[in-house]
Amino acid sequence: MPGMTPQSLSVETLYSEHHGWLQNWLSRRLGCPSLAADLAQDTFVRLLSHPRQLNNLGTPRSYLRTVAGRLCVDFWRRQSVEQAWLEVLASRPEPLAISPEEHAIIVETFCEIDEMLQRLPKKVAAAFILSQIEGLSYKKIAVKLNVSERTIKNYMAKAMLECMLIEARYHHSVT
């Protein structure tokens, strides 16, 4: 096809030769054919959006299984975050009326915060949670984590920078 790069041809070949197999593998793993179809498609979208030299793959199915497996983990993590959010909503004494768009934005933000906490060093993430969720002072967090209060301030600066980046991405996506 005119205008196609060697990279897209490789993904096209990978897709035509292995899409059916991948979808069946995901369906057996997930027990839901429609979800398997979505995640199989997402796997190839991921390959297109994150170009990589595909000519040197040892076994294409192993590579596809790895990419799809990571997408499954992302899906399950997102589902867990969304379930926790729904439980919070259900536990409120007064129903909170939010639009489906607001619900999606809230869940996406929670997922980004969860990803941020996974990326941060353990003590930085712990300091952030102790401060923002538990409401502890920096001094109490320092004692709990066995570090100086100045170190806690540095940890919080790192975590807050990550939060600001999430907020900037949010504002960029809604404008």
Rank of each mutant, 00 (worst) to 15 (best):
R46H: 13
A127N: 01
A168K: 12
T151K: 02
A36D: 02
S137R: 07
E17H: 00
I141Q: 00
S99Y: 11
R92I: 05
A159T: 02
E101C: 04
P95A: 11
L136T: 12
L86V: 11
S131H: 14
V107S: 00
S16Q: 08
L117N: 01
I133T: 09
F75T: 09
V124P: 00
R29M: 08
N56D: 11
K140Y: 07
L35C: 12
L47Y: 01
E115G: 03
V124L: 00
R119L: 13
Q53M: 13
M164A: 14
L96K: 05
V67N: 00
E94S: 09
C111S: 03
K158Q: 13
H18D: 04
E149L: 06
V73C: 06
S49Q: 10
I166Y: 00
K153R: 12
P51E: 04
L145F: 06
C111T: 06
E134P: 03
L64M: 00
N154L: 12
E17Y: 00
L86R: 05
P6C: 12
E101H: 04
V88H: 02
A40M: 06
L35Y: 06
W25C: 07
A68N: 00
K153L: 12
Q7H: 11
A159M: 02
E115Y: 05
L136A: 08
A142V: 13
A157M: 15
R28I: 12
A84K: 10
V124C: 00
T5W: 05
E162G: 02
H50G: 11
Q41M: 06
Q7W: 03
L57Y: 01
R52S: 05
A157I: 14
W85G: 03
S137M: 13
L145W: 09
A168Q: 12
P95L: 12
V45P: 07
A104G: 14
A142D: 05
V67W: 00
L89F: 02
S16K: 07
S49D: 13
S80T: 14
I113M: 01
R77D: 11
S91Y: 05
V143Y: 07
L86F: 08
L117G: 01
S49T: 11
W25V: 06
G20K: 08
R65E: 06
H171Q: 14
W25I: 04
E108G: 04
A157Y: 06
Q132R: 07
R46T: 15
R70L: 10
I152T: 02
M4H: 08
E162C: 03
Q132I: 06
P33V: 08
W76E: 15
S91Q: 10
S91D: 11
A142E: 07
E167S: 09
M160S: 15
Y155M: 06
F110K: 09
L30H: 02
L47N: 02
V81L: 12
E149F: 08
I106K: 01
V45F: 14
H19Y: 13
P6Y: 01
Y63A: 08
V73Y: 03
L54A: 10
K158H: 10
Q83Y: 06
M164P: 09
Q118I: 06
Y170R: 05
A125K: 00
R150P: 06
E149P: 08
H103P: 08
T5A: 14
T109G: 02
H172F: 11
L71N: 02
M164L: 13
V143C: 11
L86H: 07
A40T: 05
E94D: 07
E87S: 15
R92F: 10
P33D: 11
K140E: 15
G20P: 07
I106S: 01
I106Y: 05
W21M: 02
E82R: 03
I98N: 10
